[in-house]
Write a protein that binds this DNA or RNA. Structure first.
Lengths: 139, 139
DNA sequence: CCTTGAGCCTGTACTTCCTACAGACCGTAG
DNA sequence: CTACGGTCTGTAGGAAGTACAGGCTCAAGG
């Protein structure tokens, strides 16, 4: 189907999955929990997605990947959806999210430090003594 | 109950919980999934723990804290239980996990950069235009 | 035109890692 | 003796998906 110059063939669920790398079923799941909007349906009830859906889903996936909960993502998406909010309100929410991220980085760095240190102490021998195990047992 | 010089009063579940900071129910859960061994029981069926249980549970909690899955911990515990295994095997598990952690840190730093930059570009006005929202929509 | 295969629909069950309760029982201190 | 805190089992719920079953639809190839 063509309108003038651009194609308006709607995207199917599998197209969205391929475009984003998201699991097919997860797309439906996000719909049921309100993270993704209910898409328009074809005459036969098929979901019809467009590029906006794909962009939104990519955003959700990146955020999940970085450890945001669906609840937090809902908050972030709220900023996008409700454009009547003031810039100041948005700034406040974004700043608090920034703080979360920075805390997460700090936590992970602590973990990284412990892990890399103990791994480095490993002899790698066939010996039954192991720095990693000792560290985990003693701490 | 005393034997010579040391107390052998068995630890109850709540004692183990307090000694480790682990949730009461989680202790039982770890038993059912085979992470913790079935402890000996009293005449009336009460679980009787000792210091070895506490140490093992601390190991598990610390590992969880460092982001190891229960499956990975099962592997690590297997190596602890069977000390005939090589140190190299432990090293392999820990190294692969370390890599995961480092990747996560890199991802978070990327998002931190973007977030802090866009927050800084915010005017803080009561305007409906906002650098943060624009960034979220375009990424 | 018919068949085939890929994709769609819904609903529900399973997964991981817990956490919380319900209902019944026990053990000790006051 | 009774109250309180602890134990037992089994089961339910929650977060964030993942997988499958049974049935429908659509487009392409023969």
């Amino acid at each position: 189907m063509k309108v003038d110059n651009i194609s308006v063939t709607p995207l199917r669920r599998v197209d969205v999955a391929r475009a984003t790398g998201c699991n097919l079923e997860t797309i439906r799941y996000y719909e049921t929990v309100g993270i993704m909007p209910d898409p328009p349906r074809s005459a036969k009830g098929y979901r019809c997605y467009d590029d906006a859906h794909v962009r939104r889903l990519k955003f959700v996936m990146r955020s999940r990947d970085l450890g945001f909960s669906l609840e937090e993502i809902r908050g972030l998406l709220g900023l996008v959806d409700d454009r009547t909010q003031t810039c100041a309100q948005v700034q406040t929410v974004a700043e608090s999210h920034l703080q979360d991220v920075q805390e997460k980085i700090a936590d992970l760095k602590r973990i990284e430090h412990v892990l890399s240190e103990t791994v480095a102490r490993c002899t790698g021998d066939a010996a039954p003594e192991c720095a990693v195990i000792d560290a985990l047992l003693e701490k």
